[in-house]
Structure formats: C-alpha cells, structure tokens
Amino acid sequence: MKKRGIGMASIFYGTGYGNGFPDVSSAVVEIHDDGSATVLTGAADCGQGSNTVLAQIAAEELGIPIEKITLISADTDCTPDAGTTAATRQTYTSGNAVKLAAAKAKKILLDFAAGVLAVNTIDGLDIKDGYVYVKTFPQKRISVAELASHARFKGNRLIGEASFTTHSTMVDPETGQGAPYYPYAFATQIAEVEVDTETGKVEVIRIVAAHDVGRAINKIAVEGQIQGGVAQGVGWALTEEVELKNGQIQNPSFTEYLIPTALDVPEVTPVIVETYEETGPYGAKGVGEPAMLPTMPAILNAIYNAVGVRITELPATPEKILKALKEKEQKNA
C-alpha cells in the first residue's frame, strides 16, 4: 500500500568561520578611463555563483551595468585573500568587501565630480545608468566615462581597496558560552512523501523550502542554491552512505554510491524570505549551506507521518523502513 505523509523541519545556521577566527575578505576595485571597472577578489567561485553576485554588487555600487565589470577571482598572483568559499560566507563577507572597495573608488570619482559639477559636497551626488548626477537636480549630470577619463588625466587614481571582517566571539571551552557566529540564517521546509509499505521505497512528492536569506542579490541563483541543497538533502535522507569495512570504502563509485537523479528530486518550491540584515551587503546573509539542512529531517518526519515508523539511523533505506514496519506490526500484535 502506498501511504502519504507530511513532515516539517526548521533550522538555524551560524554563517561565517565563527568563534573569533579571523574571518576576513579583501577586495580591490579600479574604475578605468571609460567608466568600466575591474574587481579583484580572492573568492573562488565553486559553481555557486560568487563571481556573478560580486560583480552585481560592484555594478550596483558603481552605478554602471554589470557588462562594464570585469571580475578577476581566486588567482594568488593578483587577487587579495578573500578567505575560503565555505561557511556560507562569500556573499556576506566578500560581498561586503567588494561593496566597500567599490564605494571607496566611487568616492574618489565623486570628489572629483563635485568640483566639475560645482556642488559643495558629494552627499548630493549619485551614480545611475552610467551618469553622475545631482540627486535633487538630475538634469545636472556628467557621464561616468567622461568624468573618469578627466579625473585620471588630472592624476587621480580611481582605486578602492577594502577588507571586511565578520565579527564573532570565542566560546568558553568549559561552558560553551559566547557569541560564536554572526549572522544566523533560518529556514523551514515541509516535505510530502509517499511510502510503499510493501517495498519500503520512499518517493518524495514535493518540498516547499522557505529560507531567510536576508536579501537575495541574485534571485534565480538563490533559488538554485535552495533546490540544489534540497537535492543533496534528499540523497542524504534516503540513499547516500559511504560504506566502510575496516576503514576501507566499499562503494567508491556512482554505481554503488547513489546520488539523486532527475527522477529522485521532487519539484521544489523555493520561497525567499527577505529580512534585510543590516550588516550585510544590501541586506544579504547567505543560503549555501542552510539550503540542505531541513530537508533530511523533514523527509524523516514525513515518513513517520505516513507510516508511523521513525528512522533514527541514516539513510532511510527500504530495508530499514520494512524492518521498522515489521517491528511495529509485531509490537501492535
């Protein structure tokens, strides 16, 4: 018989290295003669999309299109150390570093613009669509390209460098008291599964995944992180296990170590909750790791909801489910 069940799970996740570890990212931004710009960051893009997100942040801060940004990343001969691509930290930590570096380069340009546009402070100036303009009198404007080339000809260099440190406090080793991570991300996922009581096989029908990411710098990329995280959670819950025998891996292949295929991952509805973290770039926190955390427990809770057995040892294989069902039957008999 096929039985359906629904399970819920919520999590929190402390982003960043944490525990007082130096969690620093550095970046350099240079605006060129024609108003285009180069960003240097040590952040490695492992596929999650930091090159795109950091370019978006630089483009936003400089008020120029993303096509005018060249982002060079993760080459130790020419990019500054941005820390590791881990701990859900690159959008937050390197995002802040790039934003600060871009703001410094921009300030040099605006200082020069103040003279050209005859305003007495840069507070009234902004950059939008490739123009520096007076916010309260937008018809007074000059193109970034013209301004940058003029400023550079006068000997100005439009270079900003910045480092950003995520703050955290070491915990006391005897009591664990302290403030080890900042900021925390939060999430709730609800899964619906169908359990075949004859075969023990679990099919995940659908998952809704709501994540507090602070702010999505790139909406589709955030959704992709959530859906990808859910897929890894599905695998962890149901099939994945490195089998060891005397310390030797028994299944070092994709034939025996089963990661989910397109037929195993359900339709995932990502829900982006934006809470605008004040310390994050444009309000962003991160999503990489939290994406996968609620999936496994939500599926296990859904299995219980469907057939009344609680799997307490991963993965929830058909054999384990059948065994648990049998034990339950014997207990009830």
Binding site: I220, G224, Q227, G228, A231, I259, A262, V265
Partner: peptide, 19 residues
Amino acid sequence: IKVAISGNLCRCTGYNKIV
C-alpha cells in the same frame, strides 16, 4: 524531460531549473 536527463547527474542544481 526528467526521464530524458535521468542518465545525467548534477550535484548542484537539484535538476528543477534544468527541467
């Protein structure tokens, strides 16, 4: 579509956006 790409593993996207 899912059947057609089921022989192609992806570890990043969860396949939804590929579909």
